[in-house]
């Protein structure tokens, strides 16, 4: 992505909708394209809910099978991205509850987790930080310093296109701090922290 004036690009939701529509019209192969397009977002949605790698894989797979089973029940193809994200979030919540996690409440939480939680950064293997360039490590440190729900939001938003931000924030159940069309609290915090850091350069 460049910093030039953005060329209008199809949003992830639109590309997903096109593949999903073709699939429903009988072009079965387009489902593979949909899987390639959306799985990264779903992966980070699951991981941002503190699922380990194995459980996150199961949850993402389950969401896809649900989609195949319920393909006709989705009225608006444009909503398929949000439907999948919501399904992963609910399935992640259900799985965590079954596993008896003490910090899981009885309802699908509106805004995923409390600000005091250890942070979604805690699910990352610290030894992997060695693969990052210095500037990337700096950015990651600032992300990891954000409140939990902001980390969870940014982790997913980073994998969708700008026109998707508002719908994806909604699908994540994050009215507070949501991104799009305004910057929102979470991204604003990160931006302020980066701009205040003399070591950070965005060139």
């Amino acid at each position: 992505m460049s910093t030039d004036t953005p060329v209008p690009v199809a949003s992830l939701a639109s590309r997903a909708a096109a593949a999903f529509t073709a699939y429903r019209l009988g072009d079965r192969d387009r489902m593979g394209e949909l899987v390639d397009l959306v799985t990264p977002v779903l992966w980070h949605t699951a991981r941002a809910q503190h699922l380990d790698v194995h459980t996150a894989e199961d949850v993402v797979q389950t969401a896809w099978i649900r989609l195949v089973d319920h393909a006709d029940a989705i009225d608006d193809a444009q909503a398929v991205l949000g439907w999948l994200i919501t399904t992963v979030r609910r399935e992640a919540w259900r799985t965590s509850k079954q596993a008896g996690r003490a910090d899981v409440v009885d309802e699908v939480p509106e805004a995923a987790l409390a600000d005091e939680s250890p942070g979604t950064a805690a699910t990352i293997d610290p030894s992997l930080l060695a693969v990052l360039r210095e500037g990337q490590r700096l950015l990651w440190r600032h992300i990891a310093d954000l409140p939990e729900r902001c980390q969870a939001l940014l982790r997913v938003i980073a994998f969708v296109d700008r026109p998707d931000y508002a719908a994806v924030s909604r699908a994540l159940g994050m009215p507070v701090g949501s991104i799009g069309p305004t910057r929102g609290r979470c991204l604003a915090k990160l931006r302020v922290a980066l701009l205040a850091d003399p070591k950070w350069s965005h060139s």
């Binding site: 293997d125 992997l128 990337q136 950015l139 990651w140 938003i157 991204l187």
Partner: peptide, 13 residues
Amino acid sequence: ILAAAREVIARLD
């Protein structure tokens, strides 16, 4: 910022 975050997160996870 978001593009850089995407790159970092994709590498870490």
